[in-house]
Design a protein around this nucleic acid. Structure first.
Length: 216
DNA sequence: ACCCAGGTGGCCC
DNA sequence: GGGCCACATGGG
């Protein structure tokens, strides 16, 4: 199985090339992006992040002190702006109530960091793992809707598998490597966007020969 | 006019 | 524990 997952990773890498995720300049920008991209198109998130950058708000203190209505207006293109404004604020509130700064927080041991993140309102397992992997640089595999769809369609895991189970399926069958986890997740998203959609485009998919989609 | 996008929390049974 | 639902914008 270890070989199977690495083989899948290698095929995707060959087909799509290096993705170099996460697309952000700072750790805090990763966190903001991870929250804003919840069930949203990344293009829209980029607009919201550009708005925050132009207003010098891409730092914890900025989000913490900016007027709420102004924040909502700036992140509006990312959708769900009412709840996402609250989520951003819940994060910075938590940060400043419990830690000196972002580096101290991200420096926590991996399991403790993940647990702390999950205790914050608005941060679920995928957002937490994205932050642990791409902001803190610790080996926590990120699972998203594409991952679930692709690997259940391939017949490697049961349909409707729980988040943590799928996460540990990857972590137990891959070498523990931050670079590998980062690239693999990004490649899975790329595959999902291009081929493994609700209506699959199997003919062109780089994984067709491995897939057990019904009718194939 | 639909359908979808790098989820999460709330509420019900 | 599982099954719905609201949340909202912009692009195909």
């Amino acid at each position: 199985m270890k070989k199977d997952l690495l083989d899948i990773h290698d095929r995707l890498l060959k087909h799509f090339g290096r993705q170099q995720w996460w697309p952000a300049e700072t750790e805090f920008e990763v966190i903001v992006g991870a929250i804003l991209t919840q069930n949203a198109n990344w293009k829209n998130v980029e607009k919201a992040i550009a708005n925050l950058r132009e207003n010098n708000l891409l730092e914890p203190g900025g989000i913490h002190s900016v007027n709420e209505e102004r924040l909502k207006g700036l992140i509006r293109p990312a959708g769900y702006y009412n709840s996402k404004a609250r989520k951003l604020r819940e994060f910075t509130n938590f940060l400043f109530e419990n830690y000196k700064d972002l580096s101290e927080f991200l420096g926590l041991p991996q399991d403790e960091l993940r647990e702390q993140l999950l205790s914050i309102w608005g941060i679920g397992p995928e957002t937490a793992d994205s932050i642990v992997l791409y902001a803190a640089g610790k080996p926590s595999f990120v699972v998203d809707a594409y991952t679930k769809r692709i690997f259940s369609r391939m017949g490697l895991v049961e349909e409707g598998i729980e988040y943590d189970k799928l996460k540990y399926f990857f972590e137990n069958n891959l070498p523990e490597d931050v670079g590998l986890y980062r690239e693999f997740h990004a490649l899975i998203v790329e595959l999902g966007k291009n081929y493994c959609k609700t209506k699959p485009l199997c003919g062109e998919c780089p994984l067709v020969s491995l897939c057990s989609l019904p009718g194939r």
